[in-house]
Amino acid sequence: MQRLIPYRRDLKVRAQELRKNMTLAELALWDKIRRKSLGVEFHRQVPLLDYIVDFYCHEIGLAIEIDGSIHDNQVMQDGIRQGRLEEKGVHFLRFKNEEVFEEIDAVLTAIEDKIQESL
Rank of each mutant, 00 (worst) to 15 (best):
M1L: 13
R3F: 08
R3T: 13
L4C: 11
I5A: 00
I5D: 03
P6M: 12
R9V: 11
R9E: 15
R19A: 05
R19I: 02
K20N: 13
M22W: 05
M22F: 04
A28L: 08
L29N: 00
W30E: 00
D31N: 09
K32F: 08
I33C: 11
R34K: 15
K36T: 06
L38P: 03
F42E: 01
H43D: 13
H43F: 14
R44A: 09
R44Q: 11
P47E: 10
P47I: 06
L49K: 11
D50L: 10
D50A: 13
D50E: 14
Y51T: 13
V53A: 12
F55I: 08
Y56P: 00
C57A: 07
L62F: 06
L62H: 00
I64G: 02
I64V: 06
I64L: 02
E65Q: 09
D67C: 03
G68S: 04
G68E: 02
D72V: 07
N73Q: 14
G83I: 04
R84V: 09
R84E: 15
E87G: 07
K88R: 15
K88D: 07
L93C: 13
R94W: 03
N97V: 01
V100Q: 03
E102S: 11
E103Y: 10
E103T: 09
I104C: 08
A106H: 11
V107N: 02
A110M: 08
A110G: 07
I111A: 02
I111P: 01
I111D: 00
K114I: 10
K114H: 10
S118L: 15
S118M: 15
L119R: 15
L119V: 13
